[in-house]
Design a protein around this nucleic acid. Structure first.
Length: 261
DNA sequence: ATGCCCCCGGTTCGGGGA
């Protein structure tokens, strides 16, 4: 089973690119972020015609996540548990994919950016990361094949940034952000892409500005975290850079894992 | 040093992204 995560930066604008990529890459499960559309306005039939079942948690203008699956799936959660005042931002959807002999639990995650760090946005991000860690700890007790994938808005180490010094005080690279990400991993998750490829320039995001893509000045912020049961089945993982080079691209490109399921 | 570019809503500009 191949599972990919892709921040599309607007499903409306990216629909042709996404459909072309789905046909070419043929992933079994796709975790989408930043669909930027209300649930009712998601281009459902286009995706279903491409052979995928759908779970959509949208909102107007910002955020929004979805799960595409060639296998039947059951939606389990449409927000991250533990929000103090209810969830107003669509950043989390979780489902169980029924692959016949095995069930695979997946979540599509759009973690808050957190900039500027001197505003309330940064503590909001860290609080969200703490809630994610708490929920992930609960999920691990099920001992399932589990994949938490998405845009984590976190560069785990300096190896994941084209200019670590310049980005040191950014919310994506701050020590607190990295500490929270490590705390999540240290529950027992495997950062699949990094586990199989220690090389630099393993980026998943390149800013539209300043020719960052052309210069390969990117960030690795999209991750697929595997439970021990999923990691034991890890066959391959990587970043598919091709969609970033297409016309009218997202600023992100997909990361993917292949599990022996 | 700053902004570059892109998307959104709904206008020709501001908010947000990372």
């Amino acid at each position: 089973m191949r599972i990919a995560t892709f921040n599309v930066n607007s499903i409306k604008v990216r629909l042709p690119l996404l459909l072309g990529w789905l046909k070419q890459a043929a992933p079994d499960v796709v975790l989408l972020q930043e669909i930027k559309v209300e649930t009712e306005k998601f281009p459902r039939t286009d995706i279903e015609d491409a052979g995928y079942n759908l779970a959509v948690v949208g909102q107007k203008t910002y955020n929004g996540v979805a799960i595409l699956s060639k296998f039947p799936m059951t939606v389990e959660l449409d927000c991250l548990p533990g929000s103090p005042g209810g969830e107003e931002q669509s950043r989390y959807v979780e489902a169980v994919v029924d692959a016949g002999a095995h069930a695979v639990r997946v979540a599509s995650i759009y973690l808050p950016n957190g900039n500027p760090v001197e505003t309330e946005k940064f503590p909001y991000k860290l609080g969200w990361m703490e809630r994610l860690r708490a929920h992930a700890a609960t999920l691990l007790r099920h001992e399932e094949i589990l994949v938490l994938g998405g845009d984590y808005n976190c560069c785990p180490t300096d190896l994941d940034v084209y200019d670590p010094v310049g980005w040191a005080n950014d919310a994506l690279c701050r020590p607190e952000t990295r500490q929270h990400f490590r705390a999540l991993c240290n529950l027992g998750f495997t950062d699949a892409v990094r586990a199989l490829d220690p090389s630099p320039h393993l980026y998943t995001f390149w800013d539209y500005q300043a020719g960052r893509w052309q210069r390969d000045q990117g960030l690795r912020i999209d991750h697929l975290l595997l439970s021990p049961q999923a990691a034991d089945r890890l066959m391959a993982a990587g970043v598919d850079k091709t969609p970033r080079g297409f016309d009218r691209p997202s600023d992100h490109t997909p990361a993917w894992v292949e599990l022996a399921v």
